[in-house]
């Protein structure tokens, strides 16, 4: 049971470019809130011991302390504003500025599968060489992958725990997302938004290929004729 108390083992291993930055922010907040909690708890315990009722001692008659109240108000405000400013660029990079790339896939969610559409060698969707695979997303390592997310029925959520990416797929619109994997391997793609009785177990696999492997996989799918 004790191994669960080790912080490093909490987050799933990260294999994406921006994942490390998310984890870094996570740790910063973890330490700030952890220290804040320990301070409050320590003060509380100390007060509970020091100021428990004892015969013959009267409580202090104090209504407040303006200076102290200003200090903790301003202090808290500063911490959260700095945190906010620190987080803004990363959010913009992940969700607002999709880097250019010629690796593109369409991911269409439906109860209870991920339909993955590859544009094929010609690089354009809705052409003859498109390839549709259920729940199998193949990408090369160290390349930006653009995902065009849509849904055929209800809202689903495209979740790549190891790549620190989550984006809802909403029927009626296409949402662009991106990631860049840094380590070859096979990773799970659960659905993170309740989508019906099959929500649990709606599961795809992301295969990150090393450079040569990816070429091989492409050749297998689209054999040069």
């Amino acid at each position: 049971m004790l191994e669960y108390l080790k912080l490093e083992t909490w987050l799933p291993p990260n294999v994406s470019t921006y994942g490390a930055e998310i984890d870094f922010l996570f740790y910063i907040i973890y330490y700030i809130t952890g220290v804040a909690f320990l301070l409050v708890a320590a003060v509380m315990v100390a007060f509970i011991i020091l100021y428990r009722h004892r015969e013959g001692r009267r409580a202090r008659y104090v209504h407040g302390n303006t200076a102290l109240e200003i200090v903790w108000t301003v202090g808290t405000a500063l911490i959260v504003i700095v945190l906010g400013i620190m987080s803004r660029p990363l959010w913009a990079r992940i969700k607002q500025q999709v880097p250019p790339s010629n690796i593109q896939v369409r991911v269409t969610a439906k109860q209870f599968n991920w339909e993955i559409l590859y544009p094929g060698p010609d690089g354009t969707f809705d052409t003859k060489d498109d390839l549709l695979l259920d729940n199998e997303l193949h990408v090369p390592v160290n390349r930006v992958v653009q995902v065009f997310l849509a849904s055929k029925d209800v809202i689903h959520s495209f979740f790549l725990p190891n790549l620190r990416l989550k984006q809802d797929a909403v029927p009626g619109r296409t949402i662009q997302a991106w990631f860049e994997a840094t380590k070859p391997g096979v990773y799970e793609i659960p659905c993170a938004e309740l989508c019906g009785f099959g929500h649990s177990g709606m599961l795809g696999y992301l295969t990150v290929h090393s450079g040569g492997d990816y070429e091989k996989w492409v050749k297998e799918q689209w054999p040069p004729s």
Partner: peptide
């Protein structure tokens, strides 16, 4: 903090 301040110097 005000709750902690209330406890401070009290007779709980």
């Amino acid at each position: 903090f005000n709750w902690l301040g209330t406890m401070w110097g009290g007779s709980m």
